[in-house]
Design a protein around this nucleic acid. Structure first.
Lengths: 192, 192
DNA sequence: CTGCGATTGTGATCTACATCACGTAACAGC
DNA sequence: GCTGTTACGTGATGTAGATCACAATCGCAG
């Protein structure tokens, strides 16, 4: 299935657009291919776009002063990602986005999103729901962080994304869980 | 300043409504007063409304199996709160909301929100931005959780809400930071 | 004023996880 | 096919914060 159709079905779940409206909506997106390891957003740079993942897998991550990495999100197909703080507030990026595997994405500029949101009520509706879903996921993860220990969070993650275990190196999973790679290693080797 | 005016100025920051449109928008809200300690949302119950805080202070919190409390949000004036997961998905509440001090709120039902969002494009626009702000705040807190130690998070919290230190009991601040009240106590008594 | 629950401080132990250190295996580029 | 880089396992040790235990104080209801 091609990118346009994937996006169309994704949108259709929450918003009602005629074919013409969707074509117009879609005309604001720019398809793009990236290779494994390629960087899409770099800390300190301007951020102009958000990205809808068609295939592959991206990661959005933060690097702290001690050069430790924390992964905010693994962006799988039909997920959206960007440095939304920088994008919405027109400030420099504080987080990075790059490719875990070869990926195809659809890019949408901040300006175009606001334009289609004001032109198409249903587009605004879609983006409200998408953001809402992200908000709920973030809340849930925060709670999990406070409430569960590392092992429980590890099992939660694998239940949510079974593919991830084989797709991404373990130290990235550790960086998502917020533990050291050593602890993660001990954790799943003592599995029961 | 009365409730209506506070909401009006709050909305005006992100959406453009005529006076008539705002009057219509406002007509869906129901003012409500609560006493300190009163419960607004209880785990396991249905959730029909979200709440805009006019005065006072609410807290949204989760209780785990070991009866430990984790505070998701202190809701101060002009903040919104609810169990959004339960509200949007029409499921039973998993979190609780109650009053830290006497409070006045404006209630909006899930149904009415969706109604005015579909009737007024600008209302949809407002709620998209509000949710977006919440999403960004949640992301930021998640990062802070992974990156900073307790002391740094404590100082971050006090910088963000200086009033909180005197307004709420310390064990609630501990429950927000995700540490034991003992640790928090030692922390600020060894303050430098 | 009085008494009792809620709030807070502080010491003693225990534990999950970080950090450091080192070794092996897999893999990519030349 | 080599060779360096990245991924991964595992031991030893250190530490932040949990947990338990108890004492002191505050604040409100009667």
């Amino acid at each position: 299935m091609e990118a346009k159709e994937i996006l169309k079905q994704h949108i259709a779940k929450t918003a009602t657009l005629t074919d013409e409206q969707f074509d117009y909506f879609f005309s604001h997106f720019k398809p793009q291919s990236y290779k494994k390891g390629q960087v899409i957003i770099t800390e300190g740079q301007k951020v102009d776009h958000e990205y809808f993942v068609v295939s592959g897998c991206l990661k959005a991550f933060f690097i702290n002063d001690e050069v430790k990495m924390y992964i905010l999100q693994f962006a799988m197909p039909t997920w959206w990602t960007s440095d939304y703080g920088a994008l919405y507030n027109q400030t420099r990026a504080t987080i990075n986005v790059d490719c875990i595997s070869d990926s195809e994405v659809l890019c949408l500029s901040n300006q175009d999103r606001e334009k289609i949101c004001s032109e198409l009520h249903q587009a605004e509706h879609f983006f409200r729901w998408r953001t809402n879903k992200g908000y709920l996921a973030s809340q849930k993860r925060l709670l999990s962080f406070m409430n569960n220990d590392t092992r429980a969070r590890y099992e939660e993650l694998l239940a949510l994304y079974p593919q991830l275990y084989n797709l991404v190196p373990k130290h990235l999973i550790a960086a998502y869980l917020g533990v050291s790679r050593e602890t993660l290693s001990r954790l799943y080797n003592s599995h029961k």
